[in-house]
Structure formats: C-alpha cells, structure tokens
Amino acid sequence: MTQQNRIDRRFARLREEGRKALVTYLVAGDGGPENTVPLMHQLVASGSDLIELGVPFSDPMAEGPVIQRGHERALEFRTSLRQCLEMVREFRREDSDTPVILMGYANPIERMGAERFADAALEAGVDGALTVDLPAEEAGPLSDLLRARNLRNIFLLTPTTSEERIQAITRLASGFVYYVSLKGVTGAGNLDPQAVRENLGRIRRFTDLPLCVGFGIKDGASARAVSEAGDGAVVGSVLVSAIGEARDGAAARDAVAEITGEIRTALDA
C-alpha cells in the first residue's frame, strides 16, 4: 500500500474543493540560479498548486523555441541536476506543502545514476519526476526506483497515443497524467478544447489519476477551456518567456505573479 505524498494530497484537496489544479513550469537556473527558489515561492503565492522544475539539458528535443532558450539561459550558468536538487531542498525550508516535480531529459539522470538520483530526489523533498524522453518502454527501471521511494512518476499522453498504450502507460503512471493537448513542441498554438475534451474522456476510461492538460495554454481563458474536462492546466512557455524578458529577478517575479494570478482567477471563477 503506497502512502500519500504531496501530489496526491494536493489533488485530493482540490477535488474536495471542486477546484482545478494550476501546474506551473520554470527552468531551474533560468535568469540566474539565485532567482529560482524565490520564483518558486512567488508561483505558489500567486496560486500555483504544483511546480514543475525544468532540469536544463543541452538538447531539449521536445521543447519549442521559448523553453529551449530557457534551457540555454540556465546552461549559461551551468545549472546542473545536482543544483536543481539543491534548489528543491532550499525551497522546502519554507514550503513543506507544495508538490514539486522535476521535468527533464534522461541523460543527466543517467549520468548521475538512476538510483543515486532517486535517493537524492527523495532526500531533497522532490515529489515526482517527468522524464520527457523516457517513454513507457524505457522507463521501467527508473519507475521502480521512484516507486520504491514513494515518489511519483508522471507520464505524457498525447492525442496520438493509442488506447493500448494509454493502458500500458497509466499502469506505470502515478501522481497525475500530463495530457499534451496538441501535436508539436511546447509553446505551440491552435488549441482545440473540443478535441481535448474528447481525448480526456478516452483516457478517463482507463485511469482515475488526475488529468492535467498542457501545451498551448497561454492565459486564463485557454487554461479554463482545457481544464473543464480535466483536473488541471499546465502553464510553461508563457512563464518562461516572461522570465526570459525580465531585466532582473524582481521583474521576473512580478511578471510571473501577474500571469499566474490571472490564470488562477480564471480557473477559480
């Protein structure tokens, strides 16, 4: 029997309150490593329910131009996986409640060693991981290590994922499911809420996990439209873009507060 972790507790609470989750993404180290933890606290203060901390990688194959540049900016400071874990540990000193997952690519984890990574993640106060280029076929070993530590393994589902795959993936998945609302890379446009609704219905037949929708959500209206049939919305590119344009850490926090606040208000309305 697995015990609840922060992710489960948060979604349970939101469900009770009849509210949708707001999941926010930023790249660790973007705009300078010293600004990341304050930005995380700002996201929470402005209404974020769960933080996806992007682990910078030199070759972020699934990202659109906005988040790619976020990775590049973070790498100018040589932000490493080890530092990302350090940031979560620091975040936890003031926030023991908000779930944090690490979102990144397989190679930095391979380099650290999957078992060492899982131990370090647990120890730092991480609640789960979404490794973009570890599909269900390749995710087994890391999944087992995470599960053994009561950490959640978040997977992507897409409009093209077959029902057979949905079943296989949701068997491995825990915490929540990240539904990619459209074909393409992060930050793409042309969201179709009707198609999202149909696809979430298809996924819902196979799992009780919370379903959060990401890719293409730019503001409160689009967040609200896609989350109606699901349990939450994931917002990334619009935040990373604002952080990239901000002249310093304080300006980045202001911009992030405004965007997050607007989406929170729309989701709760």
Partner: peptide
Amino acid sequence: GGRFVSETLIGALD
C-alpha cells in the same frame, strides 16, 4: 539503442 523519445513521437515511430 531503443526508443528514447517523447510520447509525442511514438505514434509516428510506430
């Protein structure tokens, strides 16, 4: 070897 890609590419590879 294997197939280490985002779920978004799996359909096309299949």
